[in-house]
């Protein structure tokens, strides 16, 4: 079996339902976790940029969180969340939160002080300053955080299979336990393709999202 891993194409063709289910779980885990990550992390970053007292603890926790191996995070959450799709989604949301939060915080904080000063001097209210100045100027950095989180979570979602969360990792897990090359490849190759195409696509999208005035000249 291990001799011909490329028979994975036949495996997929013969088991389209299984494959599509795993793929759809994988995509759902990634998309939903990143979506929740954005919804939680961006407001948290705004809050941290406004309330000086919160900035240090929050960024500290986020950087420590990023240092801890994702498998360890996944494992350590089991006693609290149990196993299955939803616990996996919660764990992935936490993982998405970290890079998005850190990028959003840094992005907002690194807006040019002169620009902020001018905008305040013009009489922007707090909300207008955020909406019309800080967020647009931080958007390239925030988007980079979302890109990192998405590609990273496609990878971590392969581990969801180990806590019963499904996804393409399930095929790899089956392939490992039966030493079946076709199954290994049926999980691994699509996951790799998914990760690479997502990275490239988001890289493209980033160029569209960056406000025109911030793009490097000559592009």
């Amino acid at each position: 079996m291990l001799e011909d891993p490329f028979s994975f194409v036949e495996y997929i063709r013969e088991n389209p339902d299984d494959f599509l289910r795993f793929l759809s779980q994988h995509v759902q885990l990634t998309l939903l976790s990143v979506l929740f990550g954005v919804v939680i992390a961006v407001p948290a970053a705004i809050l941290a940029s406004r309330v000086g007292l919160l900035a240090r603890p929050l960024t500290g926790i986020a950087s420590v969180g990023q240092t801890i191996p994702s498998l360890a995070v996944l494992g350590l959450l089991i006693p609290f969340l149990g196993i299955g799709f939803r616990p996996a989604l919660v764990a992935l949301t936490i993982q998405a939160f970290l890079p998005i939060f850190l990028n959003a915080y840094v992005g907002i904080r690194s807006v040019d002080r002169a620009v902020l000063d001018a905008a305040r001097g013009m009489g922007t209210s707090g909300g207008q300053l955020l909406r019309m100045v800080e967020l647009p100027l931080a958007s390239p950095v925030i988007f980079a955080g979302i890109q990192t989180a998405t590609v990273q979570n496609i990878a971590i979602a392969t581990l969801a299979a180990y806590i019963g969360g499904g996804g393409l990792g399930d095929l790899i897990l089956q392939g490992l336990s039966t030493l079946n090359g076709a199954l290994l490849f049926a999980g691994a190759v699509p996951v790799a393709v998914l990760a690479i195409t997502t990275e490239l696509a988001l890289g493209r999208l980033r160029r569209w999202i960056v406000p025109e005035g911030l793009r490097p000249t000559g592009s």
Partner: peptide, 8 residues
Amino acid sequence: PSLALFAV
């Protein structure tokens, strides 16, 4: 993803 690279 690392698990995929291992598997491949």
